[in-house]
Computed example of a mutant assay.
Amino acid sequence: MLDDIDRRILRHFQAAPESASADLADRAGVTSSTLARRLERMRARGVLRGARAEINWPVLGYTVEVSLRVTLDKTQPRAFDDFIEAAREVPEVIEIQTFLGQVDVRLSVIARDMAHYQDLYRSRILTLPHISDLDALMHVARLKTDETLPL
C-alpha cells in the first residue's frame, strides 16, 4: 500500500506535523507537488485521518485525570450503545475505549481539581446507564505518549 517515498514522507510528517509543506517536501526529498499529491492520496485511502490540536489540559486548569474501568450489565441488549452515547455527552470524558474481557469500557476523565472530579463522578459518571462495576485509577504521570509508527 505504501512505497518507500510514502513512508519517508510519513516519517518526516510525524516528526514535525506543523512544518510548512515546502520544508516537509525538502526533508522528504520530494517536490512540493509530489508531496501534495501523495498526502492527498494517503488521506483518500484513510492512512491520514486529519490534523488535530494537542491541548495541554493542565495549562487550562484541568489538573486531575482519572481512568475509569467500567463493566456493563450485559443482560441489557443496548448496554454498550446506551452507555457510550451517554458518556459522549460528558464534556470532561476525553477518551472512550471498549474492550473484550472483564472490563468493557475505559473512560479518560479530566477535572479541574478533586472537588470538581467528585462532583462530576457523582452527578455525571454514576448516572451513566447500565454500569454494573466501576473502578477508578488516579493518573499520576504520563511516561510516554507517542503515536508515531516506526516507518
Results as ranks from 00 to 15, higher is better:
Gln118His: 15
Leu120Ser: 07
Ile110Tyr: 02
Met42Asn: 10
Leu149Ser: 11
Leu39Thr: 06
Ile131Ser: 08
Val70Ser: 01
Gly101Ile: 14
Ser19Gly: 07
Arg8Thr: 06
Val90Gln: 04
Val105Asn: 02
Thr63Cys: 10
Thr75Met: 13
Arg69Phe: 11
Ala141Gly: 14
Leu68Met: 07
Arg106Asp: 06
Gly61Cys: 04
Ser67Ile: 02
Arg7Ile: 08
Arg41Val: 00
Ser21Glu: 13
Arg122Glu: 03
Pro150Gly: 13
Ala87Asp: 08
Thr145Lys: 12
Asp113Thr: 13
Gly46Trp: 00
Val93Asn: 04
Ser108Gln: 14
Ile9Phe: 08
Ala22Gly: 11
Asp119Val: 15
Asp6His: 03
Leu2Pro: 12
Ala111Phe: 13
Val30Asn: 00
Leu149Arg: 11
Arg7Cys: 10
Val59Ser: 12
Ile110Cys: 08
Ile5Val: 15
Val109Leu: 03
Lys144Ser: 06
Asp26Leu: 09
Ser32Leu: 15
Ile55Ala: 12
Pro58Thr: 09
Arg8Phe: 04
Pro129Arg: 09
Val103Asn: 07
Ala87Ile: 02
Val105Leu: 09
Val59Glu: 10
Asp82Phe: 15
Val47Tyr: 01
Asp23Ile: 12
Ile110Gln: 10
Val59Met: 11
Ser123Ile: 11
Arg106Met: 07
His116Ser: 08
Leu149Phe: 09
Pro91His: 14
Leu2Tyr: 06
Thr34Arg: 08
Ala15Arg: 11
Val64Asp: 00
Asp113Leu: 07
Ala28Tyr: 09
Leu72Phe: 00
Asp4Asn: 15
Leu24Met: 02
